[in-house]
Write a protein that binds this DNA or RNA. Structure first.
Lengths: 146, 146
DNA sequence: AGCATACCCGAGTAAAACTGTCAATTAATT
DNA sequence: AATTAATTGACAGTTTTACTCGGGTATGCT
């Protein structure tokens, strides 16, 4: 079981946008250099984030991306949902979470339960939470261990 | 984020072993046919399960695998640990879960928290729980939906 | 108008991971 | 000795990931 860098990038980029954007459009170029993520790859992610109604785009010079909603209303599971197929896909379930296996699926309940726990946890965290933490960390960055 | 079939196979195989073994060694061949998993692949998994002290091997004719401990003392997270590298690996952490990234790791706490939740959940389920469920399911298998 | 900025989009690609197979070995029982 | 069955390492096909590339299109500024 693993978390893709795609999801990690998306969350990091959103924190960066929330932290340095402050209402004004922030260009992907800024996020890319600040977070050391490839610009072309970030573009891909933000297309999905826009389709997921997490951000809005502003075209033209001086343009960039803005949060589609206040940071308090953006949950981490929404960010990951926009960027990845599903939160906890298991081979014995189809797209709607229905089990398509025969009688051999005794451990089905485990994966389903796990998926619910994961979603519950990730939906309990908002972008505002992460942004606040990041701001605190930046303030005490001098001699701090990670 | 996803759960590998490797982990699913391992759990299913362990349930099968616990259900049909009953103290006597059960050959991988039996599990393979019953669960419709490739024998050669099961071999790989059981090497790891043995190293993880989840099962014991009995060589020679009539041999096979036996639970290393009572099913009540085998937790699901232990099974997955034996078979996979780590439960929730994230690129910014090293083997021991320590963060090796610089100041760019604002979302670290999210993944760490998620990992703890996942482990907490999976460690609350024992092989005995799954075996009991499987036995119940087998008894009412006639007209049941999965 | 023309140009620079910045988003938009599809296709392609190299590397990694996943999912297995194969062959050869070791060891215990009959 | 022959047979059964676990043990091991190397290897191969496929899929996914993590990008890059090459162009577009919208917008604002001079």
């Amino acid at each position: 079981m693993r978390i893709s860098t795609k999801a990690q990038y998306a969350v990091r980029a959103m924190v960066s946008l929330s932290l340095h954007g402050e209402g004004k459009p922030l260009a992907l170029h800024d996020i890319a250099t600040r977070e050391a993520i490839s610009l072309a790859y970030l573009e891909q992610l933000f297309v999905k984030l826009r389709r997921g109604r997490i951000v809005k785009s502003v075209r033209g010079p001086g343009g960039g991306y803005v949060l589609a909603r206040p940071a308090v209303e953006i949950r981490v599971d929404e960010i990951i949902d926009s960027v990845e197929e599903s939160l906890v896909p298991v081979s014995c379930m189809d797209d709607k979470g229905r089990c398509v296996c025969g009688d051999q699926c005794v451990s089905h309940a485990v994966w389903q339960g796990l998926g619910e726990r994961v979603r519950q946890f990730l939906s309990s965290i908002t972008l505002a939470d992460l942004t606040r933490d990041a701001a605190n960390k930046a303030r005490t960055v001098l001699s701090d261990e990670c």
